[in-house]
Nucleic acid binder design. Structure first.
Lengths: 205, 205
DNA sequence: ACCTGAACACCGTTCAAGT
DNA sequence: ACCTGAACACCGTTCAAGT
């Protein structure tokens, strides 16, 4: 505000938004500091006043991605404490949908493009918080008898691994057509998840 | 041979090897057509006589990566048809080890850097063969009562998803220290895998 | 403090030309 | 058929200079 600076006041954020737009429109390979700068309407070297290097910008974009994923997961299942099994499935489905709707961003967040996430505190914080969301849900599933007993964090890891692996292989087109053609994706995910949940069905021996 | 050509006869393969070396020594971000050419001892434009573009080279490198992963998995478990449970764990462990020992190559194979694997027949073939290896193993686990009944390919997908997700999160340093410090990695993997296998332990009611 | 413009070393890719 | 060298449009990053 005030006297109107050189730029619009929040170039840092504009660059992050520009980066996310580039990812959505042109994919990971098109993401460059220079193009983000151009989209934000500044010179190609202006970003270096706000980010130490490209990795630093990538960390900021990934952090924003995790914030959105976290929000998406949080609002995935209605706070319906009764139907906890459904809630686990809906959470997993929210994760899958986020990845499909934000392919390039999801890739940036999880594909080693950010070389050392631990160096970026904000990134480390929000990604850990997202994991805690899952640990919490797992704990409630255990209490409901839907999952085996055992350390909730290890079990959460199993489930997150399962869902994350499912998404990764899906995005990489590593899931064969014959499987995908058998029915809707959400159902396949539910079946896959079902492998890890306790069955309480017909053949109870 | 014969009159000694311009180059050593198999530039195509030399470039693939050079690429794998670059990945191992300097990581994904250092992989360039020009550096591969330099390592192979030719000019920067020579690769274009053998590869249509960088994606084409990446496809060839990824294909070689899958060949090595396939070989590694094949030789992972001794042909010991008795201990089938152990064999599943050893196969998963081989997968994890391959990823840890060839981080950048593994990333290249699975992280969307190759933009459309389906366009490269050799790549599609070997990656599918690798999946079939797992389907086969799963089928035998089902017969041994270690896994639930159901379509073997869907179950294989669950297991591959679980193991692949585990590896991905591990490489991304998304598995918290408190979990990793609790014991050797192979044991954590076994525990994680155990979530999906049928228990035949003490509390059988 | 925040931004610009020139500069440098790198890239992917093409293309005429050489053997 | 296989390779070279010049050329072009891009990149990441630095740095002196401007307000």
């Amino acid at each position: 505000m005030s006297e109107k600076q050189y730029h619009h006041g929040d170039l840092r954020n504009s660059l992050i938004q520009a980066g996310i737009e580039i990812l959505a429109e042109e994919g990971v390979s098109a993401l460059s500091v220079r193009q983000a700068a151009t989209r934000a309407g500044v010179s190609h070297s202006a970003p270096y006043a706000h980010f130490h290097d490209k990795q630093d910008l990538i960390a900021a974009i990934s952090t924003e991605g995790f914030r959105r994923l976290h929000a998406r997961i949080t609002s995935a299942a209605p706070e319906n404490p009764g139907d906890i099994a459904n809630r686990l499935t809906e959470t997993a489905w929210a994760y899958v949908q986020f990845a499909l709707e934000n392919r390039a961003l999801f890739n940036l967040m999880f594909s080693g493009i950010l070389e050392d996430g631990g160096d970026y505190p904000d990134f480390a914080a929000i990604s850990q918080e997202t994991f805690l969301l899952i640990v919490d849900l797992v704990r409630r599933c255990q209490q409901a008898g839907l999952l085996r007993r055992g350390p909730a964090d290890v079990q959460a890891l199993s489930i997150w691994s399962l869902v994350h692996g499912f998404v990764s292989l899906l995005l990489e087109q590593q899931i064969s057509h014959t499987i995908l053609e058998r029915g809707p994706l959400k159902e396949l995910l539910a079946q896959t998840l079902g492998q890890i949940m306790q069955v309480r069905v017909e053949n109870r021996e």
